[in-house]
Amino acid sequence: MSAEPMTPVRASRPRPAWHVATVVETRRETPTAARLVLDVPTWPGSEAGSHVDLRLTAPDGYQASRSYSIASSTPAGTTAEPPAGQVVLAIDELPDGEVSPFLVREVRPGDQLELHGPLGAFFVWRPGESDRPVQLIAGGSGVVPLYAMAAAHGAADDAARFRLLYSARTPADVFFADELTALAGPAFGLDLVYTREAPDGWPDAVGRLTRETLAARTIPAAERPRVYVCGSTGFVEAVARWLQELGHAAADIHTERFGGL
């Protein structure tokens, strides 16, 4: 058994702690999802791709906690937008869910809830850490942490080349559609795949992502991109397998899945 190489964890990473968050803004993100902008005065900042545990308490003391990816990032020591005390979440409503329907439908500005974080130092992208290109691959709401990385990359004017392949059901289901379109350019390639319905005149076939499309619309393995994949388990399993078949090393493929809560 050989010892596995480990990426050193930065000593400066803030310890996770409980924070009180106040809802500043809610807006409809897609037909099934909402964007929540939270004011968190004690927030120490968080890296792009990290997540939080969100806890709700009922008047009788009953509590429910769920993990959510953060759509924003605020690396310590920078003057990035949004400000360090702000956390942006984008939450997809799960049918029969307990917490997500409340967050998507009921929450309004002024409401308070609890966050524990920042969490996750593995599925993150740090500006200036590497010149290697970065390939992001998102299925549905799995785009949230990848959007945070793309936005951090744009804000940092980082030299690494970025590309996002994003599989969405329909144009209306695209999270951060305006922001992603604004980021697209020479340093950030945006490729959309629609699985149910595409805009009028869309040149590509509508349907589930295939290995052929993945090969054609991502940075080739020969360029040794670091790859981040986020989506449902079925999506992540298929994409990670295809990436390895296309020559990407397992160690270059970072995965995150949304679970069953």
Binding site: R55, L56, T57, A58, Q63, E98, E106, D111, E114
Partner: peptide, 25 residues
């Protein structure tokens, strides 16, 4: 430090003593 979040009642269910704190079945 916990406080109630306005409007949240959660799904009513029998408390399950086999679930550790913060867990959902």
């Amino acid at each position: 430090m916990s406080f109630a979040t306005r409007g949240f009642s959660g799904r009513r269910r029998e408390p399950d003593t086999r679930l550790p704190p913060g867990q959902t079945l």
